[in-house]
Design a binder for these strands. Structure first.
Length: 482
RNA sequence: GCCGCCUUCGUCUAGUGGUUAGGACAUAGCGUUCUCAACGCUAGAAGAUGGGUUCGAUUCCCAUAGGCGGUGCCA
């Protein structure tokens, strides 16, 4: 049995798209489920739009996600180079071979001519096909035009036959001969085109399974014709359903972020993104929804992948993220939250880490994305200016004062330093003072938080520590006097 | 226009020739409660349409519609 080899082949012409991540993930899961290899190939044949910094972003992105390549640029492997711009000799060799064997030909048609043909087909309600005009030119004529310096593209001779293949996800897919024409495989500037390079490289890199987005479904017959012309065995194809905008169009930045690194910067965890993405178009047929990457690998079966596109639903991503944020060890949560807090000016190098840890412990259940941490915690670091009237929103000035004072006496003496015991102790106070829970807890909580909405009094005390608690209680008491 | 693919709650989806069509997110209500969350419970919410086949179809077949993708000397 041949070893399974899959690849993800992005072009570095823009920021890394979340769709690339999804395609990469499914290729990774499939390869690893079969103990095979997962590789990265950079498709930088478009010299104008390809940028090294985008390639770097792709590497960085996959690394962050924990999807490790077995082969790729900067990684090596036996099938390199893994950058198409470094494989041009191979493409030229194959072009010559096709030309020499009469399987392809030079086309001297101008853009204007081709445009005219296309318009005519459209008028007649026919699919736009190249006329094949240059296919019938004699060898001498081609040579003459070439010697005159006429620019030309290279077209593949496409046999007039229907193409059928079996897609792992879609089943049998047939394309009729009449929509296929002699397509261009090499530009007039001598650079090769996608369909051509993809076939050459997938074969050269011994790719066994081509797993890619459904937008490539209509490229597949062309590639199959190329495989046949070159006399190569076909890989297995699988076309993944598309990631969609809320309006069901192909996912784009029109409706929000599509760049992977933006998700990271907004405070999404890689595990959450992976878990969420894996469940878009596939599920393990159980009610279980949280899977680690290794668990996904063992549960994954590509035949179970759905055919219909899936809307990228942010609310559900948030739900997954919240789950994984809660599961984070405290140290890790501190580490990951720190940059956000630092940016917001809430912490500095000198800030006590354990204090930050106490604060995060209190708010961690309400964190959906890490970027929310500053707004969720700012009042711990700095008492906000608040209206003294807020202190007496529940109860009177007298009950508020009473409550604050009793709490202040606790801080001046000993009190339990674990949340459960402290909570139990505080719960005794309203009855002891002969007031309601609200009359006791509301003013004390407001005194500590400086705002109407916050964690409980006990939690605030735990996070703030004794000194700060005392300070805030005194501030509140003085406010009540005025 | 032409070609292809697709179609179960708002969203992600499960499942089945006879089911109260299941779960999750979201939404709403209730509970808990010192507020906000969190949490718990409850509720509403779905097989595009039309034809067949069948005792019976969401499930099988056909057609239509709609959506999306492709239609490049982009990838």
């Amino acid at each position: 049995m041949a070893i399974v080899r899959t690849r993800v082949a992005p072009s570095p012409t823009g920021h890394m798209h979340i769709g690339t991540v999804r395609t990469g993930l499914f290729n990774y899961l499939f390869a690893k489920a079969h103990h095979g290899a997962f590789l990265l190939r950079i498709e930088d044949t478009d010299p104008v739009r390809s940028k090294p910094e985008y390639e770097a972003e792709i590497l960085k992105g996959f690394k962050w996600l924990g999807l490790e390549f077995d082969e790729g640029p900067n990684l090596g492997g036996n099938y390199g180079p893994y950058r198409q711009s470094e494989r041009l000799d191979l493409y030229r060799e194959k072009t010559s071979w096709l030309l020499d064997n009469g399987l392809a030909y030079q086309c001297f048609c101008t853009e204007a001519e081709l445009e005219k043909v296309k318009e005519k087909s459209a008028q007649q309600g026919l699919p736009p096909r190249y006329s094949g005009k240059c296919r019938t030119r004699s060898r001498d004529e081609r040579l003459r035009l070439q010697n005159e310096g006429q620019p030309f593209t290279v077209r593949l001779i496409v046999p007039r036959e229907d193409i059928t293949f079996t897609d792992l996800i879609h089943g049998a897919v047939t394309t009729k001969a009449e929509v296929l024409d002699d397509f261009v495989i090499v530009r007039s500037d001598d650079t090769p085109l996608y369909n051509f390079t993809a076939v050459i490289d997938d074969h050269a890199m011994a790719i066994t399974h081509v797993i890619r987005g459904e937008d490539h479904l209509s490229n597949t017959p062309k590639q199959i014709i190329l495989y046949r012309a070159l006399g190569w065995e076909l890989p297995v194809f699988a076309h993944l359903p598309l990631l969609l905008n809320p309006d069901k169009s192909k996912m784009s930045k029109r409706f929000g972020d599509v760049e992977l690194l933006r998700f990271r910067d907004e405070g999404y965890l890689s595990q959450a993104l992976i878990n969420f993405l894996a469940f878009l178009g596939w599920n393990p047929k159980t009610d279980r929804e949280f899977f680690t990457l290794p668990e996904l690998i063992s549960a994954f079966h590509i035949e179970q992948v759905n055919k219909a596109g899936a809307i990228f639903n942010r609310a559900k991503l948030d739900y997954f993220n919240q789950h994984y944020v809660r599961a984070l060890p405290l140290d890790r949560l501190i580490e990951l939250s720190w940059p956000y807090l630092e940016n917001a000016g809430l912490v500095a190098e000198s800030t006590d880490r354990s204090m930050v840890g106490r604060v995060l412990t209190v708010v961690r259940d309400r964190i959906r994305t890490l970027s929310e941490v500053p707004s969720l915690t700012d009042f711990f670091f700095l008492l906000p200016a608040y209206d003294p009237a807020l202190l007496t929103e529940k109860g009177s000035k007298a009950t508020a004062k009473q409550s604050l004072e009793i709490l202040l006496t606790f801080t001046e003496k000993e009190y339990p330093r674990d949340l459960t015991s402290l909570t139990d102790l505080l719960k005794l106070q309203p009855a002891a003072l002969g007031i309601s829970n609200g009359e006791f807890f509301w003013p004390t909580r407001v005194a500590l938080a400086g705002k109407a909405q916050s964690p409980s009094t006990a939690e605030m005390m735990m996070a703030l520590g004794n000194t700060e608690t005392q300070t805030r209680l005194r501030v509140a008491l003085s406010r009540l006097e005025t």
